[in-house]
Computed example of a mutant assay.
Amino acid sequence: MDGHTRDELLAEAIRLRRQGNSEEARRRLLDMVAEHPGDAEVAYQTAWVHDVVGLEAQAVPFYESSLSGPGLSEEDRRGALLGLGSTYRVLGRYTQAVDTLRQSVAEFPDDGALQTFLAMALFNTGQHHEAMRILLKLLATTSEDPHVLLYRRAIETYAQDLNDTV
């Protein structure tokens, strides 16, 4: 591919996506997938660009491929798990979204974005109590709002059981 290394080509495709030239990035990444079919990083970036251009259904197999074996950095693995879970949710595949995002939160319990997307998927499956518990706990533990901080203990208590009036 033009005498450039795989890393150079991948960096250029990522740069194109970041600059808003997603269709060109997508075209280049699809070429790279054809040349590097087992490359988890290329698959992840290909999934991501498909999401960016609104081709969520086409993103799914690339996310799944990127996560099927080794090859992703921890940061990219987080991103791929979030991307896959979120994409399942957008496609109405709520059970798969919850399953993927639960696995993600178990693997990365400190990741507030994963927790937030899990809460959204739980909402979509009618698991409102658990969704609200996750969001309240996240709010209580991450907010810097002085008014939230003032009531942090109460919010954390209610996060355990919203039906509790004490």
Rank of each mutant, 00 (worst) to 15 (best):
M1C: 06
D2A: 15
H4W: 05
H4T: 11
R6S: 06
R6Q: 12
R6W: 08
E8M: 10
L10S: 09
A11I: 08
E12L: 11
A13C: 06
N21M: 09
S22M: 04
S22H: 03
A25K: 13
A25T: 02
R28Q: 15
L30Q: 14
D31R: 13
A34M: 00
E35N: 06
P37F: 08
G38T: 10
G38A: 04
E41L: 14
V42A: 01
V42P: 02
A43P: 03
Y44N: 07
Y44I: 14
Q45C: 01
V53W: 02
G54M: 10
L55S: 12
L55G: 05
E56L: 02
Q58P: 00
Q58S: 13
Q58L: 13
Q58H: 07
V60Y: 12
V60M: 13
Y63A: 06
S65M: 15
P70A: 14
G71I: 03
L72F: 07
S73E: 11
E74P: 02
D76C: 04
R77C: 06
R78S: 11
G79A: 09
G85H: 01
Y88I: 09
R89Q: 04
L91N: 02
Q96T: 04
Q96R: 12
A97S: 14
A97T: 10
L101A: 11
L101S: 11
R102D: 05
Q103P: 00
F108T: 14
F108Q: 03
P109F: 08
P109S: 13
P109Q: 12
D110W: 06
G112C: 02
A113K: 13
L114D: 07
L114M: 12
T116W: 10
F117L: 06
L118E: 12
M120A: 14
M120K: 14
A121Q: 10
L122E: 15
T125Q: 13
G126I: 06
H128N: 11
H128W: 10
A131K: 06
M132A: 14
I134H: 13
I134D: 12
I134M: 13
K137P: 00
L138G: 09
L139G: 01
L139P: 00
T141F: 01
S143V: 11
E144T: 11
P146Q: 12
H147Q: 09
A154R: 10
A154E: 12
A154D: 09
A159Y: 04
D161H: 10
N163W: 08
D164G: 02
V166C: 02
